[in-house]
Design a protein around this nucleic acid. Structure first.
Ligand SMILES: [Zn+2]
Ligand SMILES: [Zn+2]
Ligand SMILES: [Zn+2]
Ligand SMILES: [Zn+2]
Lengths: 131, 131
DNA sequence: CCAGACTTTGACAATCATTATCAATTGTAC
DNA sequence: GTACAATTGATAATGATTGTCAAAGTCTGG
């Protein structure tokens, strides 16, 4: 059975108060800075569990690091992410969903999964860079 | 300036004769098995160069490994990949391209990039699994 | 054909994120 | 409370990738 520990709750809450995507390492550092003695391995495990349970979304940063986020949208969706400040916008795109399943079946593939992420510079970061 | 070495050519050729996506490690192993004394670091460097120069496409496997492939399509495109045997189909989807740029600009993002990959089981692997 | 200047190579060490270990701790059901 | 299985966390192990740097290779005049 699944137990309730303050560690798991701490991770859930820390993830909830974080705006963009965070890495396990980053969240662990934040928790430690906040005075929590939580262990790194536990943060990895908790994030993995949250992702499995659908409470968190995960993706790979362009540097190959696994990032997590507690999204407000319940269903399946994708993300538009600022590669400078991490600002994240949740996007739903039925057109992409149907396209993915269709391109898969059109080529005889079953059990399709897809990875769709858009990275860019948000308005604020664009302004800051241009200035 | 960029020099010509048999190592670079060996990597280019090995990549060309490989069907699906390969990892640096995998390509190095294949070259070694083929009798080449090429070094691992060199394979990493060569693949990275080929990717930079547009001669190879790269993506991250779902396990986080960097994979490379010499694609036949010249322009920008995406991939439909069998997660069992690695069979890869190159797919072009203008609809997805325009969607990505539009969703970015609609949210004030500039310099959009996107990652779009579809994974699944190819017809042969689907049959093998079901049988 | 050189020589010199500059690149590239490759064995090896160093990084760095992530996972495995495993004894000690802690939730939970009765 | 007791018993017992799940969880934790310090630490070691893993595994891909990158850094190092001396030795070897490549190219370009002369
Ligand atoms: Zn930004
Ligand atoms: Zn989707
Ligand atoms: Zn297959
Ligand atoms: Zn595209």
């Amino acid at each position: 059975m699944k137990r309730n520990t303050w560690q798991r709750e701490a991770v859930r809450e820390a993830l909830g108060t974080t705006d963009g995507f965070v890495s396990a390492q980053g969240l662990h550092a934040a928790l430690r800075d906040g005075g929590s003695p939580i262990g790194l391995a536990t943060v990895y495990r908790a994030l993995s569990d949250l992702a499995d349970g659908g409470e968190a979304d995960s993706l790979q940063s362009m540097e190959g690091e696994a990032l997590y986020r507690a999204c407000s949208t319940d269903g399946h969706h994708h993300h538009l992410i600022c590669r400078n400040c991490g600002l994240t916008v949740e996007i739903e795109a039925d057109a992409v969903e149907t396209w993915a399943t269709q391109v898969a079946s059109a080529n005889g593939f079953s059990q399709p999964q897809h990875i769709v992420d858009v990275f860019g510079l948000c308005a604020a970061c664009t302004r800051a860079t241009t200035a």
